[in-house]
Amino acid sequence: MSTNVLGIPTDEGMDISGVLYNYNVVKNVEDDFVVTVQNKDKEDGYIFQDTEDWSGKHGMRIQKVIPLPYTPIENIGEGSIKTTGTGTVEDATILYMYRWDECRNPQNNENCPGYVPIIPEIPNIDVYDALEDDAVDDATEETDKELYEKEKEEDTENRDKEEEDEDRLELAMAASENALTIANTATQASVLQTMNNATNVNSYYVAQVPGGVYRESISLQGGEVVDNKKAFKSLSQDKLHNTMIREQYQ
């Protein structure tokens, strides 16, 4: 008996108090037909068995209520309708009557007497103890101070020497790099010169202007260009001048 079958939660605390069933029997009067509605006990045998012998009777619809002593739902096993003889059972419905004792298991509701608040399980975490780590012991082991100082001085000397070597090497590399740069520049200039020499500019020298002379064809009417005094006056004001200057940058 599960939640899917009953349509209600089947937690501890539910008792079945009865079964109501109905079904329709289709048969001929003269035929033997026996119908048993039953529910197995999970432990052994049956919780109930209700048998109707329809032998020699008219088939029709039957509805019965089977009262049961309060039976914990955990004990109720598979239910079935068993038939023997000639006939059929149609439109069968089986309803279980129940009561719900929520506090039978106090853990069902925190308001039930005896409810024990659930304490979450705390996972066991291994705490790293650096004091028990051999590597840490080795690293923190006490050392000979003089030996340490001597090693330190040697290290310093070695480091200075290495730095000095590096500087020298850098200088040497810089000198060779400069030489290469100069050489490259000279080479490029030489290449450009060669390219220019190869360019044929003779066609420009041999071109001839028709007529040989370009004469002035524009004549100035009146023969004199007079300054625009209005404009001059206007431009002489700082404000307009400044505005024009600013407009160049907008």
Binding site: M60, R61, I62
Partner: peptide, 15 residues
């Protein structure tokens, strides 16, 4: 008409 009974023994009521 009798349409339903609580016992198969009542199936003869209509007749």
């Amino acid at each position: 008409a009798v349409v339903q009974t609580s016992s198969s023994d009542m199936s003869g009521y209509q007749a």
